[in-house]
């Protein structure tokens, strides 16, 4: 049995009916807004920096001596040079992905018995930027950057490769590794732009 609750709409009193006081209140609000400063970002000319946790185009962290402990275990079997993508081809990202076919990961065994990743491609046309692959990565290799302009003229350009991913990772770490992790409403730039947000 569904319970139905009837609510009565408050009726306007005579003054409000005769003099259209609601209209006048609305006009007051728009006039106030008319005198305020605009808050638009003139997009192609000025761009907002997204928060650090923003889920943009993917990147690979490189082997730079700051790996998590798990990399010491896995990295023993890997042939990875310094300043190269620290991917260990564990396929965890592909396992976690809701659209697994967008990953193309290949690795070979070298004559000395070690493993080397030869191919790591992501087709971003199929990606929904959920970030599950980032959570799944055991060596903190796959990350998402703050780059959000991923439009391209050709479909083949939307596939990202290991080399440019590690470039992007290096760049992202250089820019924002030291930055404190924060939620976006405390962002100083936002505050500058929108004013202090008062939550009621």
């Amino acid at each position: 049995m569904i319970k139905v609750k009837f609510l009565e709409r408050p009726n306007l009193n005579l003054w409000e009916k005769v003099f259209f006081l609601d209209f006048i209140n609305g006009l007051k609000v728009t006039f106030k807004n008319l005198l305020r400063k605009t808050i638009t970002t003139k997009y192609p000319y000025e761009k907002l920096t997204p928060p650090k946790r923003f889920r943009g185009v993917h990147a690979h962290r490189v082997k730079d001596g700051q790996e998590p402990p798990s990399f010491a275990v896995l990295g023993k079997f890997m042939e990875i040079n310094y300043d190269e993508s620290r991917c260990v081809a564990c396929y965890m990202c592909q396992q976690a992905c809701p659209m697994p076919t967008l990953f193309k990961i290949e690795a070979v065994q070298l004559p000395n018995g070690k493993k080397r990743v030869t191919k790591f491609e992501m087709n971003l046309l199929n990606c929904l930027y959920c970030g599950l692959c980032v959570d799944a990565c055991p060596v903190d290799c796959l990350i998402m950057t703050d780059i959000y302009e991923s439009a391209n003229y050709h479909r083949k350009n939307c596939v990202i490769h290991m080399e440019d991913m590690s470039d992007r990772g290096r760049d992202f770490d250089r820019r924002r590794k030291q930055e404190k992790d924060r939620i976006w409403i405390d962002d100083q730039e936002r505050t500058k732009l929108w004013g202090q947000i008062r939550w009621t």
Partner: peptide
């Protein structure tokens, strides 16, 4: 322009 500024955007620019 008017509509833009009422909605706190600059309109054609």
């Amino acid at each position: 322009k008017f509509a833009g500024h009422v909605q706190q955007r600059p309109g054609p620019l």
